[in-house]
Design a protein around this nucleic acid. Structure first.
Lengths: 125, 125
DNA sequence: GTATCGTTTAGAGCGCGCTCTAAGGCAAGC
DNA sequence: GCTTGCCTTAGAGCGCGCTCTAAACGATAC
């Protein structure tokens, strides 16, 4: 039988988010409907953790929090919003591809600069 | 004869940085030794503009401003710091490659999610 | 001469995404 | 019953990278 709930500290360790940030994400509706135990302590489910990991992915790929809140809001409306969520995600996919292209371009220029410095070092160093 | 100096507005248009940001970059020593005309107005040279474009590249690849200031400081010390600048740049190159790898990984996961949504749409939509 | 620009400076303010504080509650250990 | 410790909340504070304001100055237009 696999464990089905996690305390805020456990989720913090699993996700790398601090307990402060986990409460903050709930306050701004990035994550919703977290259960509570008899003391009012948060109890996160497996699917809550999976959702947090997805949020982290969106953040690390540059999605602004407002857009993530929009996504979370669609998700809470249920199955009827699947298409809108897919479209939002496809838009974001294009943003990531564009970031990748920009980074490659920058990388090339920086490599050129490094080569330039190496030549300077050979000439004068 | 090619134009050799630019006003702050011209540099703003060339680089996309606002005049405010250009003054700010000078205040924090990201760019140094900008000439002045008789009225005390800034006069940027071609090489100032090239340096700004390099700074923009560093920033767009995630280098923190403190590290950019360090780079600018080394540059102002002259030729003897070429090696240190190259090393700093090589460190940054590795950072960019790591960003690229992470982005690719995230992209893959997001594509999977999109496929998952498409399946949901076929089943229930 | 005066109104309109664009410039200068020092320094305040802002938006983002957290990050932390204060004050209080419950539970277990001694 | 008191200490320790982790939890709760509302709300203040922070670091980054700008972004803007206020006050003053000089050049040009009329």
């Amino acid at each position: 039988m696999t464990k089905t709930t996690y305390t805020i500290q456990e989720v913090s360790q699993l996700t790398g988010l601090t307990a402060h940030t986990l409460r903050y994400y709930e306050k701004i509706s990035l994550i919703r409907g977290i259960e509570r135990d008899a003391n009012g302590y948060r109890l996160y489910s497996e699917s809550d953790v999976a959702w947090l990991e997805f949020l982290i992915r969106l953040r690390e790929t540059g999605m602004p929090i407002q857009e993530m809140i929009r996504f979370s809001s669609l998700r809470s409306e249920g199955e009827t919003t699947v298409r809108q969520r897919r479209e939002l995600l496809e838009l974001h996919e294009r943003s990531i591809r564009s970031q990748l292209a920009d980074l490659y371009c920058h990388l090339g220029k920086i490599e050129e600069k490094i080569i330039h410095y190496k030549q300077l070092e050979e000439e004068h160093g």
